[in-house]
Simulated scan of single mutants.
Amino acid sequence: MNHRRVGVSHIPSYALYLLAGVLCVYFLFVLARAFKESIIIQKRDRINIVYYGRETELISIGLTDGVHYIVSFSQNNKVSVPGGYGRYNVGALGKLAALEKTPDLIGKTFSSMISAHVDYYILPKEPEVYSGEDTDSPMFSQKSAISQMFSGSFVTNAHIFDKLYIAFLLSQRRQKDFAVLRSLSEEGEDGNINFSERRFLKKFKGFFYHQSLRQEEKEVQIVYHRYSAATTLSRVIEGQGVRVVDLADGSISEGRKKCVLTAEDTTGKTIHYLARMFNCDVQKGSPEASDIKLVMGTELTEQWK
């Protein structure tokens, strides 16, 4: 019996080159998009970073005014968690975010707490339920802050270019460069000790402003169909130095998935900042009550209610 020898087929070399070329183009595209969306290109006035863990702190770096803050938070204070989750201890937020598989909860919760946008968060992949009080002498560890940014044991929303730039900024800072802002609390009707957004906003209003947005002096109207989401969003926007002049109840926002920003001038810093912050579509139009009209869609409403 004759046995026919079957040769092993090989992928043609030109196909391998083509595949390698496609992968290179895709890789360059991903890098270019990450670079375009990075803080290096966006040129913000201030960056707010939450380090969540056994010692939870906010680090705020002023890029234009050279004023930097550090805030320590009590793990035992209860806070309102945007998204309809109710109130949780600060020390349990990481567990909640892990169970819900929504690490963005950390950024949104602390944004609501300080009434200003938290740009980046860093938290353990496997968080515990933490306890402990805040301190009036929070420590800034340059080595720890940078290493957590790149560690595989931590989760962050910072992309590679953001990480590199933040690491550079942190490497230039020392403990003495940071002014300490105290976390503020109050006793609730149920006897629990709650973080007080009201007291924190009253005492530190303006500390987290972006001066370029404030100088542009654009006014914003928010159109909503859930008031609680609109009030939280309003506090965060005003914490950036943008004035919110009206909250309008409108059915126009119902059934619309994405939020929409409308303005006659769609080239300004404020509208582009809001579009990036809340992932909104931008359209040209003539708002009647303000310079910019923000119509909340269902996604934004669910995130901030």
Results as ranks from 00 to 15, higher is better:
Arg5Val: 10
Val8Lys: 10
Ser9Trp: 09
His10Cys: 09
Ser13Glu: 12
Ser13Pro: 06
Ser13Gly: 05
Ala15Asp: 06
Leu18Glu: 07
Leu23Ser: 11
Val25Asn: 03
Tyr26Met: 14
Leu28Ile: 15
Phe29Cys: 13
Ala34Ile: 09
Glu37Cys: 10
Lys43Val: 12
Asp45Met: 13
Ile47Leu: 14
Ile47Glu: 12
Asn48Tyr: 04
Ile49Ser: 04
Val50Gln: 05
Val50Gly: 02
Tyr51Val: 02
Gly62Pro: 07
Gly62Ile: 04
Leu63Glu: 12
Leu63Ala: 10
His68Cys: 11
Phe73Pro: 00
Pro82Gly: 02
Gly83Pro: 04
Gly86Met: 09
Gly86Ser: 06
Asn89Phe: 14
Gly91Leu: 05
Gly94Ala: 01
Ala98Asp: 11
Leu99Asp: 15
Leu99Ile: 10
Lys101Ala: 06
Gly107Ser: 05
Gly107Tyr: 00
Ser112Asn: 14
Ile114Asn: 03
Ser115Tyr: 05
His117Thr: 13
Val118Phe: 01
Pro124Ile: 03
Lys125Val: 05
Lys125His: 06
Glu128Asp: 15
Gly132Asn: 03
Thr135Gln: 03
Pro138Asp: 00
Ser141Ile: 01
Ser141Gln: 00
Gln142Arg: 10
Lys143Cys: 03
Ile146Ser: 01
Gln148Glu: 07
Met149Cys: 10
Phe154Gln: 01
Val155Leu: 15
Ala158Ser: 09
Leu164Gly: 09
Ala167Tyr: 05
Leu169Asn: 00
Leu169His: 02
Leu170Phe: 05
Arg173Gln: 02
Gln175Thr: 03
Leu181Arg: 01
Arg182Val: 03
Ser185Asp: 01
Gly188Thr: 08
Ile193Glu: 04
Glu197Tyr: 06
Leu201Arg: 15
Gly206Ile: 08
Phe208Gln: 04
His210Arg: 15
Gln211Met: 15
Leu213Phe: 06
Glu219Arg: 13
Gln221Ala: 15
Gln221Tyr: 10
Gln221Ile: 10
Val223Thr: 10
Arg226Lys: 15
Leu233Ser: 10
Ile237Asn: 08
Arg243Gly: 06
Arg243Phe: 05
Asp246Glu: 14
Ser251Asn: 12
Arg256Thr: 02
Arg256His: 04
Val260Asp: 07
Leu261Cys: 08
Thr262Lys: 13
Ala263Leu: 06
Thr270Arg: 08
Ile271Arg: 09
Met277Thr: 12
Phe278Gln: 03
Asn279Gly: 07
Asp281Lys: 14
Val282Glu: 12
Glu288Trp: 02
Glu288Cys: 07
Ser290Thr: 01
Asp291Leu: 06
Lys293Val: 15
Leu294Thr: 07
Val295Met: 12
Met296Phe: 04
Gly297Val: 03
Thr301Arg: 05
Trp304Val: 10
Lys305Leu: 13
